[in-house]
Amino acid sequence: MQSQLPLYPESASNFSSQVDGLMLFMVAVCLFFGALICVAVVYFFFRYRRKTADEIGAPIHGDLRLEITWIVLPFFLLMAMFGWGAVIYVDYRHAPPDTLDVYVIGKQWMWKLQQPNGRREINELHVPVDRNVRLILASEDVIHDFSVPAFRVKMDVMPGHYNSMWFKPTKTGRYHFFCSQYCGTSHAIMGGWVTVMEQDEYAAWLAGSTNSGDPVAEGAKLYNDLACNTCHLPDGKGRGPSYNGVYGSKVKLADGSAVLADDAYIRESILQPNAKIVAGFQPVMPSFQGLVTEDQIIALTAYIKAQKDQPVPGKPAAGEPATGKK
């Protein structure tokens, strides 16, 4: 268990070791310069104390070489800090391709999390050790922030669009996560625990889920309830493109460009259908803005994702990226 006076959090992700290395470097540099100044001040303070009441100091006005030294030298150290930090940050902002995606929805004042298979949790997150995990974050109201000190990561959860963060847990255990962006009355209790499990345990845990429906099934139901099925026929002969094989592919658009059909694209297509029109189709789809919740968008996305390997209309076999919109 935690000691009474912890000084630094546990190190439990790929980023913790990187961040801690940089932290150590910066602490060392800063301690050196801080100590240099403190020692100089204290030494001068006693060494040059006033001896007689009318004494004056030596009239030294400055020294150009010294000034240049203490401008240039720190500059290089600062650039080292900047560069090192930037490398970690760029890594952090760009998740590797093979991530386990967990959706995280923040709302005043709780976290709703959903595993890839649809298992839902409130204020608890289970992840397998040594796997790249990506959290896809959205907020239903104000700005929140998902922060896991033991992993040394955090990211704001914005209303209106997705943010994402990723990490690779390196150590099993239970770690606090917090809401770090002030979000109103119960901001302080808007936290929970990340449980890092062995991969097989995680698989077993995931399989043992009973508390919620399969998002693919839920998405399929929504697909009918929201009457998506009247236009988006699987054979691609409806007024809208087929879902089959869309997810993860490059979609050709009417304006000639192409876009990667990822979560953000699908979300956009549901809320702002005509922002990107698939080549060969008319902009006739109504917006579902205000008609679907973030949860439902996730379910629909899961459903579309599940059709990834279905045969693509107009193509002999799956595998090749195809045109078509959900």
């Binding site: 760009h94 209106g160 669009h161 994402s164 953000a264 809320l271 803005q289």
Partner: peptide, 8 residues
């Protein structure tokens, strides 16, 4: 994992 910037 292009995160779109589109806002609802």
């Amino acid at each position: 994992p292009a995160i779109a910037i589109h806002r609802a």
